[in-house]
Nucleic acid binder design. Structure first.
Lengths: 246, 246
DNA sequence: CGATCTTTTGAGTGGGGTCAAGAGAAGTGG
DNA sequence: CCACTTCTCTTGACCCCACTCAAAAGATCG
């Protein structure tokens, strides 16, 4: 039996039983497709579902009245948006599709049912939330302190490692559907400067990026250039110390 | 009976019974003092407690190997750090005191006991977590898109409104213990530029800042200058729609 | 009442922005 | 399948916001 990306990801943290896995997969029953560049949900909307990204890339973004736009997070397959959003009355940001997207809408009851019946999944979902928060803090550091060169390198490192988690990296390459404009919105730079900086990274031999495919010949080297430390992703079975039985 | 800042804050979201309030206050039994500029917990440490800020200001921060430092969040009285951190093996950031600090260390069992016995508190704590995440996203937007002038104005607006929530604003003034260096680390600017920008804000009549006191004569005007929208703080009794009975 | 931290000012610089336009790539419709 | 539009990427020239370095003036605190 083959499981979805959410199971893949949570399994990195917690030891999940076959029963746990099946329950997680059952959660993703209600799936639908979204066209690229369409919004999944908009600032001001009332949140009704937790969205699970099954396939494709999406982003959280916020805009200022004059049109400036900041991508504040990237969603990859296996990512859950906003566990427990129901308690808020309205969204404070939008979520947009980058590629064609396959998402599962999870209603409140299904979510509650799952966590009640599967304590280890609940732990794993907590881990997921905490890592999401840690990523947001790292982005704050990224925007506040890193140079353009470091900043873009850091973004690429992070996405690459997160894709590894859900088995979407072959050898040293992965799909990379973000445009330079998207990278600009995510890093707080202008598209022109992103273009020039990507060329620098290419010239340094740190990345190959063409035709929506990213290749990182030497991940360690790119990480060094980005001042990247993976600790904030909390990989490496953080959940081990919670494995009381079995 | 007078309650602590946590009760004040959560009451902004949920209708709390006297019993709820008393339980929250009982949570803060184990208090201790921290000297200004001391670290409460450091990156790499194992998390053992949830920290409740009872009095004083603190900050989360991250540093790069070469010493660059980014404050990624400010903690005010009533703030809880990292509900549920226990599931992680180590901290990915540090928490430092800005002023003399009074914190309560809450152990895992106390926290679990509280949420089991008080479902409405659990909801309110979820709200708290979601608002914390929303603030982190807003900071990402702040660093990525706003100019120095807007950025500092935004920070001041946010802190002012969050202080209002816990009743720490008298008329149009509040304590403001952050140094210009702290503001620089929080906004990704240099102290020199923060100094000049604060002078601009003063010249525009938007703020009075001297002797660790901040006065905002016209909050609406400062908010306009900051492109500040309060929606991400989710004030205004978001929890109302959850008041089934009462 | 020194020692140290914090704020302020000045002068010069540079990383990244702006504006503009052309070259590719990729959808779209007839 | 090709002409057309529309993104996306690239390059060049110029500029400015915010940084750097340096030093002095206030605060604050043992």
């Amino acid at each position: 039996m083959t499981f979805g990306p959410l199971v893949l990801k949570l399994a990195a943290f917690a030891r999940l039983s076959q029963d746990d896995r099946a329950a997680l997969d059952r959660l993703a029953r209600n799936q639908r497709d979204i066209a690229p560049r369409r919004d999944l949900i908009r600032e001001g909307d009332q949140p009704r579902f937790v969205h699970l990204i099954v396939d494709g890339w999406a982003c959280r973004y916020k805009t200022l009245p004059d049109g400036r736009r900041q991508i504040v997070a990237i969603f990859l397959p296996g990512d859950l948006c906003d566990l427990n959003v129901y308690v808020l009355r309205e969204m404070d940001h939008s979520v947009g599709a980058i590629t064609r997207l396959r998402v599962a809408d999870i209603c409140r009851e299904d979510m509650a049912g799952l966590t009640e019946a599967h304590p280890r999944i609940t732990q794993a979902l907590w881990w997921h939330e905490l890592v999401t928060a840690a990523i947001q803090r790292e982005w704050t550091l990224n925007l506040g302190q890193r140079s353009a060169y470091e900043r873009i390198a850091h973004l690429l490192c992070e996405l690459f490692m997160r894709l590894q988690l859900v088995d979407l990296v072959r050898a040293d390459s992965c799909d990379f559907p973000m445009t330079q404009n998207d990278i600009a919105d995510a890093t707080g730079l202008t598209p022109v400067h992103v273009n020039r900086t990507l060329q620098e990274l290419r010239r340094a031999g740190l990345i190959v990026l063409q035709g929506r495919t990213l290749t990182i010949p030497d991940l360690k080297a790119l990480q060094a250039a980005a001042l990247f430390s993976a600790n904030y992703l909390h990989l490496g079975r953080d959940g081990r110390h919670l494995d009381a039985n079995d």
